[in-house]
């Protein structure tokens, strides 16, 4: 038993806390996507939105990072920058799919293509990001209040807790408030919502834009907080797709994303963790297999929920369909 605790303390604790921190990336991404999907819109543009959110935040940071503003203000402005850029991307998406009633899959994919591309252009632009000075803010700025700790807790900071809060708030909003109820009605059955006097388009716009803003935070978090590296931006797209998987994995329940994202990141960093244990060398091929597992599990959840066919566990009924009130 003592041996286990010692093992836990030396290896597992770090691993688990790190996984929690890593998971916040998907928490943002999938909470944002859940809000959008609950309004009946399958937004495949999330990877692009997360990328652009990251770029937006980094742009702000690179402009004000060296300005001598108080650190907390810099952090807040960075977060706002990421959120605003996410909202902007969400606006493009909702204008095309809500107002112009365009095909959601195609629009989403185009948005991802655009967002990922533009982020790379921005992040590698020498003028805008001289010597990647968005990292001029040390990641410790984001690690309030644990920044000074020496143990693994110092990995968790404001942006991590913000992710948890947003996730729980989103869950509360969706399942405990009338506005959330109205939103879910829009995604389930827009015609019914419309006849009950709900402004369907407004709900769709707001859900998509706010959802996109939240997703955008995920990109910033990953670049400047979790990784704090100037190559981090290259892998955000992959985590965007994983966030979409996570939405399905937790069956559209935001509060479960906390557990889901933890599980996903445990799997993703499993092989690196094993490598840290002395005397154990994982095979080269173990890593990709472990990284495949989140998707496999998601597929299994998708299949099981469709076999059980429990109504609450299905995607929102009108997911992917445009709503148009026919003139009768």
């Amino acid at each position: 038993m003592t041996a286990f605790f010692a093992f836990f303390k030396t290896y597992l604790l770090d691993y688990f806390v790190d996984s929690l921190a890593f998971g916040a990336t998907f928490m943002y991404g999938s909470t944002g996507e859940t809000l959008t999907e609950k309004a009946g819109h399958l937004n495949l543009g999330i990877p692009g939105i997360m990328c652009m959110g990251g770029a937006g935040g980094c742009l702000v940071l690179s402009f004000i990072g060296a300005s001598g503003l108080p650190p907390f203000l810099i952090v807040i402005l960075g977060i706002l920058g990421a959120f605003a850029m996410g909202v902007l991307m969400g606006l493009i998406y909702s204008f095309l799919t809500v107002t112009l009633r365009a095909n959601q899959n195609v629009t989403g994919l185009a948005l991802t293509t655009f967002g990922v591309g533009l982020m790379k252009v921005i992040m590698s632009n020498k003028k805008l990001m001289v010597a990647q000075n968005y990292l001029i803010i040390p990641k410790e700025y984001f690690r309030f209040p644990f920044a000074s700790r020496q143990d693994s807790l110092q990995r968790l900071g404001v942006m991590f807790f913000l992710a948890v809060i947003i996730t729980i708030a989103a869950s509360y909003f969706l399942y405990r408030t009338k506005t959330g109820l109205n939103l879910r009605a829009v995604g389930e059955n827009p015609a019914t919502a419309d006849s009950a006097g709900i402004n369907v388009s407004r709900y769709k716009y707001l859900a998509t834009c706010i959802g996109s803003g939240i997703s955008g935070l995920g990109g910033l978090y990953y670049i400047v907080d979790y990784m704090a590296s100037n190559e981090a931006y290259l892998s955000i797209e992959a985590y965007g797709w994983l966030s979409i998987a996570l939405v399905i994995f937790v069956l559209w329940r935001p509060h479960l994303t906390i557990i889901g994202s933890f599980l996903f990141s445990v799997l993703l960093s499993c092989s690196s963790f094993i490598a840290t244990i002395p005397g154990v060398t994982p095979s080269m091929s173990a890593k990709p297999l472990m990284r495949m597992l989140p998707y496999v599990f998601t597929i299994i959840v998708l299949i099981l929920s469709s076999i059980r066919n429990k109504r609450e566990n299905q995607p929102p009924s009108s997911l992917g369909l445009s709503y148009f009130r026919e003139e009768r």
């Binding site: 692009g48 655009f114 591309g117 533009l118 252009v121 992040m123 590698s124 632009n125």
Partner: peptide
Amino acid sequence: ISGALPNVMIG
């Protein structure tokens, strides 16, 4: 400029 420009244009 970044090699990702085509994606922006296509988008």
